[in-house]
């Protein structure tokens, strides 16, 4: 079992390599020249050429990629073109707000979406079901920044219950930290909740048609037992899958959310780096995001056998 799980983990290595290759070559395709950026606005063509050589940009692709990978393996993500600070350090400084935001969003979304899915599936075709469906459509279709502005208008500007912007680190205390994240997490989670509750409902409704549900009823089980004991456990695999895959949504959304609410996180770092064409930083954060996404989905995969005894690695 452990050995097979280890094999499953090893299988992600080639994927990670491909991701690294993709991230690295993306910058080839993107417009703009890092040397121009680094040399500054007033640089002469000669200075730019010198910068290019110093940065190794004149070397062939494979060689550059190899060097980059080697450094990467030692934890060196390069240095920011703008601030001259190592990318790893930059990211490290910005990690707390982003981790706080995404984890908080993940937790509240799952806690809200799963009961919603259960309720909708249970009362299928009822007003509740349609309400959840409507909420889902709304959650999907309202862009994060629109929702964010509506929220801060109502709760920060009008009602003055919550701060408009900014982040309070955990070291300032749990409540200030939480307060600074309520609106960002709400805005970021809306689409995620919609996704999880929709998929969860569909999975449950399908499971409720299965023969073993009929068997449970024929034994005299009440609707609560049928739903929670017989149906829900079967829905654990699809629900945990969508939670894992939906993390992609959270990561993309974090960039927007952190920008709107001025949270000093990795998402903001990303947005700023893109605006300034700070290539090493862009590479670093994209790599970080991809790896986190893969690791989370790997973790979900490794959970499957707990939910469903038919799945073995």
């Amino acid at each position: 079992m452990l050995k097979l799980a280890f094999k499953r983990i090893l299988m992600t290595v080639p994927v990670m390599f491909l991701v690294a290759l993709l991230v690295f070559s993306l910058l080839y395709l993107a417009p703009g020249d890092p040397a121009v950026v680094f040399a500054g606005d007033q640089a002469t063509p000669e200075q730019i050429e010198m910068t290019r050589q110093r940065m190794g940009l004149d070397q062939p692709f494979v060689q550059r990629f190899g060097t980059w990978l080697l450094n990467l393996a030692q934890g060196d993500l390069g240095t920011s073109l703008i601030s001259n600070v190592p990318v790893a350090k930059l990211i490290g400084q910005r990690l707390e707000p982003t981790l706080s935001l995404t984890l908080l969003t993940l937790v509240w979304s799952a806690l809200v979406a799963i009961p919603l899915a259960i309720l909708a599936a249970w009362k299928r075709g009822s007003l509740i079901d349609r309400g959840v469906m409507l909420l889902g459509v709304a959650g999907f279709s309202i862009p994060i920044f629109v929702l964010a502005y509506i929220l801060s208008y109502v709760f920060a500007l009008e009602l003055r219950w919550l701060p408009v912007q900014g982040y309070k680190p955990l070291s300032d205390g749990l409540w200030p930290w939480f307060r600074s994240l309520i609106m960002p997490a709400a805005a970021l989670g809306a689409g995620y909740v919609a996704l999880i509750s929709r998929i969860g409902r569909t999975a449950l409704v399908e499971i409720m048609q299965q023969d073993y549900i009929r068997t449970a009823k024929s034994k005299g089980a009440n609707p609560r037992i049928v739903l929670f004991r017989h149906a829900l456990k079967n829905a654990a695999v699809p629900i945990s899958t969508v939670i894992g895959l939906g993390v992609g949504l959270l990561i993309g959304g974090a960039v927007v959310t952190e920008t709107v609410f001025a949270l000093p996180g990795v998402g903001r770092l990303t947005a700023d780096a893109i605006l300034r064409r700070d290539y090493p930083v862009i590479q670093g954060v994209v790599l970080l995001f991809s790896f986190s996404y893969m690791l989370i989905n790997l973790a979900v995969d490794l959970l499957y056998p707990i939910f469903d005894p038919r799945i073995r690695y």
């Binding site: 023969d211 073993y212 009929r214 068997t215 449970a216 005299g220 004991r229 038919r310």
Partner: peptide, 23 residues
């Protein structure tokens, strides 16, 4: 519900799908 499983039992055609796979 007190009748089902207690006074009347039922078995079905498909033994593969009639049992809950995760219990």
């Amino acid at each position: 519900r007190d009748v089902r499983g207690n006074e009347i039992g039922m078995i079905f055609q498909e033994p593969m799908t009639s049992l809950n796979p995760v219990l």
